[in-house]
């Protein structure tokens, strides 16, 4: 049976939940046994990260630091360092990386470099004998595929599982790396976006989202006012980003941010599978839509059948008056 090993890149705040991969590995081990290794990779040794990995169920933690890594680290450097760390591995292993842009890119690239199989963003993984079975969404979340492989090395990304098994405590080891990092890829110029994006969608307890029916930037300005009153983050559906009413980082869905708020306020969006794929199952959805037949009402906790123009300004007024 494949061993389990979570690969955790540290030092990039855009990785919303790096230790999700450890928790996911622990959940697989709780079903089918085995230890849960975690390899943490950062610029400096990080005691908090080691503690977090242990809390999420790692049993063997290797904390690797490479002074040549930048913050945030470049993908090419992380790849070179992980490749170096895994070079001597011989056991069949299922490697798990945190879901999201960084982890998913690393998983795909490492898999090809190390002649393993990239499994993509899986919803579940099972090991049985020498086989790994992966389940994965396809067709915009409207279908599910089951795939199997006998490959010795598999790489997948996973979200944090709903229930976490108890953490048994971990053996820890720290190493300093000095393997060469590629110097032919220039580091990115980084600009921190001001304003609303600073309020991260990931981790927000309330998200206010607008869709195509908002019909313009003015409507989105009102949604931002509402979000400010609720201390919420603002999101958007794909057509709203396409229209330029919201920025790329605000897209929620299968192809965008995955949000796990307590409350998700959805204005003038229809509730397609591709959009809902970006909303955690525990979020209570409040929907405002002028079409009583809109799909979003099927998944909403509370729905208002009304044009947003009659709801949003009035709602802002009332919340201000409290």
């Amino acid at each position: 049976m494949h061993d389990l090993c979570a690969l955790i890149p540290l030092g990039d705040p855009s990785v919303a939940d790096p230790f999700a991969a450890v928790a996911a590995a622990a959940a697989i081990a709780a079903r089918s046994g085995g230890r849960v290794r975690a390899i943490l990779l950062g610029r400096v040794p990080d005691a908090d990260a080691i503690a977090a990995a242990e809390r999420d169920g790692a049993t063997d933690i290797l904390s690797a630091a490479h002074a040549g890594l930048s913050e945030p680290p470049q993908a090419e450097h992380l790849l070179a360092a992980f490749e170096h760390l895994l070079a001597a591995e011989t056991a069949d292993t299922l490697f798990l990386l945190p879901a999201g842009a960084v982890g998913e890119e690393l998983a795909a690239r490492l898999a090809i470099r190390l002649r393993g199989v990239p499994l993509g963003r899986c919803t579940s993984l099972d090991r049985d004998g020498g086989q790994v079975t992966a389940r994965r969404a396809s067709h915009g979340g409207r279908a599910e595929a089951r795939l199997t492989t006998q490959a010795p090395r598999c790489f997948a990304s996973l979200r944090r599982p709903a229930a976490a098994p108890a953490a048994p405590g971990a053996a820890r080891r720290e190493i300093m790396l000095d393997c060469p990092l590629p110097n032919d890829v220039p580091p990115p110029e980084i600009r921190h976006t001001a304003g609303e994006q600073a309020r991260r969608l990931e981790g927000a307890r309330i998200v206010v989202t607008g869709g195509r029916g908002m019909a313009g930037a003015e409507g989105f300005a009102l949604l931002r006012d509402l979000a400010a009153l609720l201390d919420a983050a603002t999101g958007a559906s794909l057509p709203a980003v396409d229209a330029g009413w919201a920025s790329v980082g605000q897209q929620v869905g299968q192809s965008g941010a995955f949000v796990t708020p307590d409350l998700y306020l959805a204005f003038a969006l229809s509730g397609t599978a591709q959009h809902l794929a970006g909303i955690g199952l525990n979020a209570r959805i409040v929907a405002v839509n002028s079409d009583p037949e809109a799909e979003i009402f099927r998944v909403a906790d509370l729905g208002l059948v009304a044009p947003w123009q009659e709801v949003v300004p009035e709602l802002i007024e009332r919340l201000r008056a409290r």
Partner: peptide, 8 residues
Amino acid sequence: TRGARDEI
């Protein structure tokens, strides 16, 4: 765009 940062 990666999280809260824009990159070139």
